[in-house]
Amino acid sequence: MPLPSDLQSRLDDPAFWGAYFFEADDDADDSGEDDEPGPIIVEFEVGGGYALVLDIDGCFDMVDLGLRVPGESELLEIGWDDQAHWHPDSLRWAELDLIARAAAVLDPTLAHPGAVLALTGRFVVLDAHDDVEAIGPVMDAAFGPPAPGAAWWPTADRWLSKADGRRDGIVWQRDENGDWAVDQADSAATGRDLHSVRRPGSKFPFAAWRALLAAAESTVAQAGADR
Protein backbone atom coordinates (compact mmCIF):
# COMPACT_ATOMS: atom_id res chain seq x y z
CA MET A 1 0.00 0.00 0.00
CA PRO A 2 1.51 3.39 -0.98
CA LEU A 3 2.30 5.92 1.71
CA PRO A 4 -0.57 8.30 2.47
CA SER A 5 -0.16 11.45 0.40
CA ASP A 6 -0.14 13.67 3.48
CA LEU A 7 2.83 11.69 4.81
CA GLN A 8 4.68 11.32 1.51
CA SER A 9 4.70 15.09 1.06
CA ARG A 10 6.41 15.56 4.45
CA LEU A 11 9.33 13.18 4.11
CA ASP A 12 11.63 15.95 2.89
CA ASP A 13 10.57 18.31 5.69
CA PRO A 14 12.95 18.59 8.67
CA ALA A 15 10.06 19.82 10.84
CA PHE A 16 8.23 16.55 10.27
CA TRP A 17 11.20 14.42 11.27
CA GLY A 18 11.90 16.56 14.32
CA ALA A 19 8.30 16.12 15.47
CA TYR A 20 8.16 12.44 14.56
CA PHE A 21 11.18 11.63 16.71
CA PHE A 22 10.11 13.92 19.58
CA GLU A 23 12.99 16.29 18.94
CA ALA A 24 10.80 19.33 18.29
CA ASP A 25 7.22 20.56 18.54
CA ASP A 26 4.83 19.04 16.04
CA ASP A 27 4.62 20.56 12.58
CA ALA A 28 0.83 20.62 12.42
CA ASP A 29 -0.78 23.69 10.95
CA ASP A 30 -1.26 26.31 13.66
CA SER A 31 -4.62 27.52 12.40
CA GLY A 32 -6.03 28.47 15.78
CA GLU A 33 -8.80 25.91 15.48
CA ASP A 34 -9.63 23.52 18.28
CA ASP A 35 -9.81 20.40 16.10
CA GLU A 36 -6.76 18.19 16.38
CA PRO A 37 -5.39 16.66 13.19
CA GLY A 38 -6.39 13.07 12.60
CA PRO A 39 -3.96 10.16 12.79
CA ILE A 40 -1.82 9.01 9.88
CA ILE A 41 -2.19 5.28 9.24
CA VAL A 42 0.61 3.58 7.30
CA GLU A 43 0.37 -0.07 6.22
CA PHE A 44 3.37 -2.00 4.96
CA GLU A 45 1.95 -5.12 3.32
CA VAL A 46 4.25 -8.14 3.12
CA GLY A 47 1.99 -10.69 1.43
CA GLY A 48 -0.73 -13.17 2.36
CA GLY A 49 -2.88 -10.45 3.90
CA TYR A 50 -0.29 -9.63 6.58
CA ALA A 51 0.96 -6.10 7.19
CA LEU A 52 2.96 -4.04 9.65
CA VAL A 53 0.97 -0.93 10.55
CA LEU A 54 2.03 2.43 11.96
CA ASP A 55 -0.62 4.59 13.61
CA ILE A 56 0.91 8.06 13.94
CA ASP A 57 -0.93 10.48 16.20
CA GLY A 58 -1.82 13.65 14.32
CA CYS A 59 -0.06 15.77 16.94
CA PHE A 60 2.97 13.44 16.93
CA ASP A 61 2.50 12.53 20.60
CA MET A 62 2.47 8.77 19.99
CA VAL A 63 3.32 6.19 17.36
CA ASP A 64 1.66 2.77 17.64
CA LEU A 65 3.00 -0.35 15.95
CA GLY A 66 0.46 -2.97 14.95
CA LEU A 67 0.23 -6.29 13.15
CA ARG A 68 -2.55 -6.88 10.66
CA VAL A 69 -3.66 -10.50 10.35
CA PRO A 70 -5.79 -11.71 7.41
CA GLY A 71 -9.46 -12.09 8.27
CA GLU A 72 -9.21 -9.99 11.43
CA SER A 73 -10.64 -6.48 11.69
CA GLU A 74 -8.62 -5.51 14.77
CA LEU A 75 -4.88 -4.90 14.77
CA LEU A 76 -2.61 -6.68 17.21
CA GLU A 77 -0.61 -4.05 19.07
CA ILE A 78 3.04 -5.01 19.35
CA GLY A 79 4.64 -1.77 20.49
CA TRP A 80 4.25 1.95 20.93
CA ASP A 81 6.42 4.99 21.37
CA ASP A 82 5.50 8.12 23.30
CA GLN A 83 7.10 10.30 25.96
CA ALA A 84 5.35 8.81 28.97
CA HIS A 85 5.09 5.00 29.06
CA TRP A 86 6.90 3.92 25.92
CA HIS A 87 7.40 0.29 24.84
CA PRO A 88 9.16 0.58 21.48
CA ASP A 89 11.62 -2.33 21.74
CA SER A 90 9.65 -4.67 19.48
CA LEU A 91 11.67 -5.66 16.41
CA ARG A 92 14.89 -7.35 15.48
CA TRP A 93 16.87 -5.61 12.77
CA ALA A 94 16.77 -8.67 10.49
CA GLU A 95 12.98 -8.77 10.78
CA LEU A 96 12.45 -5.14 9.81
CA ASP A 97 14.92 -5.45 6.94
CA LEU A 98 12.97 -8.47 5.64
CA ILE A 99 9.66 -6.64 6.01
CA ALA A 100 11.03 -3.62 4.17
CA ARG A 101 12.24 -5.81 1.31
CA ALA A 102 8.88 -7.56 1.03
CA ALA A 103 7.02 -4.24 1.11
CA ALA A 104 9.24 -2.95 -1.70
CA VAL A 105 8.43 -6.03 -3.81
CA LEU A 106 4.70 -5.47 -3.44
CA ASP A 107 4.86 -1.69 -3.82
CA PRO A 108 7.78 -0.36 -5.90
CA THR A 109 7.14 3.15 -4.52
CA LEU A 110 8.52 1.86 -1.20
CA ALA A 111 12.11 1.68 -2.36
CA HIS A 112 14.51 -0.17 -0.07
CA PRO A 113 16.25 1.19 1.91
CA GLY A 114 13.78 3.99 2.38
CA ALA A 115 10.60 4.98 4.16
CA VAL A 116 9.87 1.61 5.78
CA LEU A 117 13.16 1.59 7.66
CA ALA A 118 13.15 5.34 8.30
CA LEU A 119 9.67 5.35 9.82
CA THR A 120 9.68 1.98 11.60
CA GLY A 121 13.31 1.78 12.70
CA ARG A 122 12.38 3.41 16.00
CA PHE A 123 10.94 0.03 17.04
CA VAL A 124 14.21 -1.88 16.53
CA VAL A 125 16.52 -2.81 19.39
CA LEU A 126 19.94 -4.26 18.63
CA ASP A 127 21.98 -6.81 20.55
CA ALA A 128 25.54 -8.08 20.32
CA HIS A 129 24.75 -10.29 17.32
CA ASP A 130 23.90 -7.31 15.11
CA ASP A 131 26.55 -5.95 12.74
CA VAL A 132 26.29 -2.23 13.42
CA GLU A 133 28.95 -1.36 10.85
CA ALA A 134 26.81 -2.94 8.14
CA ILE A 135 23.49 -1.62 9.47
CA GLY A 136 24.58 2.01 9.85
CA PRO A 137 25.00 2.81 6.13
CA VAL A 138 21.64 1.17 5.37
CA MET A 139 19.89 3.40 7.90
CA ASP A 140 21.68 6.49 6.61
CA ALA A 141 20.47 5.60 3.11
CA ALA A 142 16.94 5.14 4.45
CA PHE A 143 16.90 8.59 6.03
CA GLY A 144 18.54 10.18 3.02
CA PRO A 145 20.68 13.32 2.94
CA PRO A 146 19.60 16.21 5.16
CA ALA A 147 17.35 18.80 3.60
CA PRO A 148 19.12 22.10 2.92
CA GLY A 149 19.20 24.24 6.03
CA ALA A 150 17.80 21.50 8.26
CA ALA A 151 18.24 22.27 11.96
CA TRP A 152 17.66 18.59 12.79
CA TRP A 153 17.64 15.49 10.62
CA PRO A 154 17.59 11.78 11.50
CA THR A 155 20.86 9.93 10.94
CA ALA A 156 22.12 6.43 11.60
CA ASP A 157 24.18 7.68 14.54
CA ARG A 158 21.15 9.33 16.16
CA TRP A 159 19.07 6.23 15.53
CA LEU A 160 21.80 4.01 16.92
CA SER A 161 22.02 6.01 20.15
CA LYS A 162 18.49 4.80 20.96
CA ALA A 163 18.40 1.42 19.21
CA ASP A 164 21.70 0.04 20.45
CA GLY A 165 21.31 -2.33 23.39
CA ARG A 166 24.61 -4.16 22.98
CA ARG A 167 26.27 -2.67 26.05
CA ASP A 168 23.14 -2.69 28.19
CA GLY A 169 22.61 -6.40 28.68
CA ILE A 170 19.86 -6.57 26.06
CA VAL A 171 19.72 -9.92 24.29
CA TRP A 172 17.42 -11.49 21.71
CA GLN A 173 16.73 -15.16 22.53
CA ARG A 174 15.09 -17.87 20.42
CA ASP A 175 12.96 -20.55 22.08
CA GLU A 176 12.11 -24.12 21.07
CA ASN A 177 9.21 -22.86 18.92
CA GLY A 178 11.50 -20.62 16.92
CA ASP A 179 10.10 -17.48 18.52
CA TRP A 180 12.43 -14.59 19.28
CA ALA A 181 11.92 -12.62 22.49
CA VAL A 182 14.04 -9.87 24.01
CA ASP A 183 15.31 -9.62 27.57
CA GLN A 184 17.76 -7.67 29.67
CA ALA A 185 20.25 -9.25 32.00
CA ASP A 186 20.43 -6.56 34.66
CA SER A 187 18.61 -3.32 33.95
CA ALA A 188 19.76 -1.74 37.20
CA ALA A 189 23.39 -1.81 36.04
CA THR A 190 22.84 -0.28 32.61
CA GLY A 191 22.24 3.11 31.08
CA ARG A 192 19.41 1.97 28.81
CA ASP A 193 16.41 0.10 30.14
CA LEU A 194 14.49 -2.32 27.96
CA HIS A 195 10.86 -1.36 27.30
CA SER A 196 9.18 -4.16 25.41
CA VAL A 197 5.99 -6.21 25.27
CA ARG A 198 7.99 -8.96 23.55
CA ARG A 199 9.67 -10.46 26.59
CA PRO A 200 9.97 -14.21 27.20
CA GLY A 201 6.67 -15.58 28.48
CA SER A 202 4.75 -12.44 27.49
CA LYS A 203 1.42 -12.25 25.67
CA PHE A 204 3.09 -11.02 22.49
CA PRO A 205 1.33 -12.62 19.47
CA PHE A 206 4.27 -14.85 18.57
CA ALA A 207 2.34 -17.20 16.27
CA ALA A 208 0.89 -14.34 14.22
CA TRP A 209 4.33 -12.73 14.05
CA ARG A 210 5.89 -15.95 12.76
CA ALA A 211 3.20 -16.07 10.08
CA LEU A 212 3.90 -12.48 9.02
CA LEU A 213 7.62 -13.18 8.70
CA ALA A 214 6.91 -16.36 6.73
CA ALA A 215 4.71 -14.35 4.37
CA ALA A 216 7.45 -11.76 3.94
CA GLU A 217 10.04 -14.45 3.25
CA SER A 218 7.77 -16.00 0.64
CA THR A 219 7.25 -12.64 -1.07
CA VAL A 220 10.98 -11.91 -1.24
CA ALA A 221 11.81 -15.46 -2.39
CA GLN A 222 9.17 -15.40 -5.13
CA ALA A 223 10.50 -12.06 -6.38
CA GLY A 224 13.98 -13.55 -6.60
CA ALA A 225 12.68 -16.61 -8.45
CA ASP A 226 10.86 -14.42 -10.97
CA ARG A 227 14.00 -12.53 -11.97
Rank of each mutant, 00 (worst) to 15 (best):
S73K: 10
P146T: 05
R68G: 04
A94L: 11
A103Y: 13
G144V: 06
R122F: 09
I99G: 08
A94Y: 03
R68N: 01
H129Q: 11
L96A: 07
P137E: 11
D57R: 04
D82K: 01
P146M: 09
A104K: 13
W153E: 05
L126H: 00
A111Q: 09
R101P: 05
R122V: 03
D61A: 11
A102V: 08
R92Y: 07
F123S: 00
S161C: 13
H87I: 00
D140Y: 11
V63N: 00
L76V: 15
L96D: 02
D130I: 02
D57N: 01
G66V: 00
A151K: 12
D140C: 08
W80N: 09
D157W: 09
L110Y: 06
V132D: 01
L160T: 11
L119N: 02
D168C: 15
D164N: 14
P148S: 07
D82E: 09
L65D: 02
F123Q: 00
D131Q: 05
D61T: 14
A147H: 14
V63R: 02
G79Y: 15
L119V: 08
G71M: 12
G121A: 01
F60N: 00
D157R: 12
S161K: 13
P88G: 09
T155R: 04
E77L: 15
R167P: 00
Q83P: 00
H85Y: 13
T109C: 09
I170W: 14
E74V: 04
P88I: 06
Q83T: 14
G149L: 00
G121I: 04
G165A: 02
L75P: 11
D89P: 06
P137A: 06
F123I: 01
A104D: 11
A150V: 01
L119F: 10
H85N: 11
W159V: 07
P137Y: 10
Q83N: 13
V63D: 04
A163Y: 12
D131C: 05
A115T: 05
E133A: 15
M62H: 12
V132K: 04
D157L: 01
W172T: 06
D82V: 01
F143E: 05
R92N: 02
R166Y: 05
L76G: 08
D107S: 10
D157C: 00
L106P: 01
H129I: 00
P70C: 13
I99L: 15
I99Q: 10
R92P: 03
D157N: 09
L91R: 05
G71L: 14
S161T: 03
L119C: 05
A151M: 07
I56G: 02
W80H: 15
C59Q: 07
P145T: 09
R167M: 11
A163R: 10
P148E: 15
I99N: 14
G79M: 14
E133I: 01
W86R: 12
K162V: 13
E133N: 14
P137W: 11
E77I: 13
A150G: 06
